[in-house]
Design a protein around this nucleic acid. Structure first.
Lengths: 175, 175
DNA sequence: GCATATGTAAAGTGATCGTTTTACCCTCTC
DNA sequence: GAGAGGGTAAAACGATCACTTTACATATGC
């Protein structure tokens, strides 16, 4: 496996499981089997690593969420929980742990959320045949809610969100 | 002001703004104007402080959210955002930053979420005259979603959640 | 009027933080 | 076959971490 890939995958796992600040670079390099010199050659510093992990995860996330139905969106989310666990949105966690004061991290988080919003807009268009800002907003709230409720209620939160989103879509179709 | 109150209030602010791990005990004691010896006499260790802050915030939060209507619930949430800022649920952040591995913190988080759920159940009962698990689940998802979406969309997320919750309640009333 | 409780200031504990440095080892390529 | 590129190991950097210790001040209550 490519050394950069191994680095980013290991970092993502450790950040996800133990948090960003609590994950030391020493623990990370030894877990990835990489010297610290190489790590810094690749990502510059810890914030650079965090941003690289966020971007890579964003790519993987949106590759999965590239669906065109509400059903598939939330079912895929539940699959994500099963495979990757549910510990809240990693980009929001990165933003929170750095106090919102690191511009590149804040931008990566906003990019991630913006992309999610565009995906939901497209799904709404495909489902009810027109744009509906209010419905899209509601679905994003349910999606965000499911991501965070899954940490204490388990992955089934995605199914509850799915049912509610369907109900709202039916309502919008009837209007 | 009571020394313990001053300690917990200062800690809550620093934890909220900079994160738990990133907030050092030295910075905290000097911000609160308290010696570190006194701090440890009061809360034992850092995890004890985190739990104490979580419990105090939980009390304050639920004192505010003791409403009996969907409208008041989400309006109060927006007021909370305006007054305290929106950086995600502090109890989930504490759980995440400690990797879910500190029992007292995990329990404080679950207690907080359980209390919120009971409040929502009561509101549903007051609004539509009967228990409705599905509606309560949906409202909790919207509430959780609003808390986290507010970090990047602003406090208005609470209003969008309020409108959606109303729509779902109307639907439940009609059924 | 003395003990007890509760606080402060400040130094010290060893560990760990993010990051850099030094010195060396392969494996390509021209 | 020399030089460049990309990697390793390991030590060192000063700062900061959570936490403890020592020594002293100021009240309150019996």
């Amino acid at each position: 496996m490519d050394i950069r890939t191994r680095l980013l995958e290991t970092a993502e796992q450790l950040f996800e499981r133990h948090g960003f600040t609590a994950t030391g670079m020493d623990r990370l390099t030894s877990a990835a089997g990489i010297s610290s010199r190489t790590l810094y050659k690749h990502v510059g510093n810890k914030n650079g690593l965090i941003v690289a992990v966020m971007n890579e995860r964003d790519r993987r996330f949106h590759r999965l969420m590239k669906t065109d139905s509400i059903d598939a969106l939330f079912t895929t989310l539940q699959t994500w929980f099963t495979q990757e666990g549910a510990r809240g949105c990693l980009s929001l966690r990165a933003w929170g742990e750095t106090g919102g004061g690191v511009p590149e991290i804040a931008e990566a988080m906003e990019r991630h959320k913006q992309r999610l919003r565009e995906r939901i807009d497209a799904i709404v268009l495909a489902e009810i045949g027109r744009h509906d800002t209010e419905l899209a907003e509601a679905i994003q709230l349910l999606f965000e809610g499911a991501i965070h409720a899954a940490t204490y209620r388990g992955g089934d939160a995605a199914q509850a969100a799915r049912r509610t989103a369907h109900r709202l879509a039916d309502l919008a179709r009837a209007a």
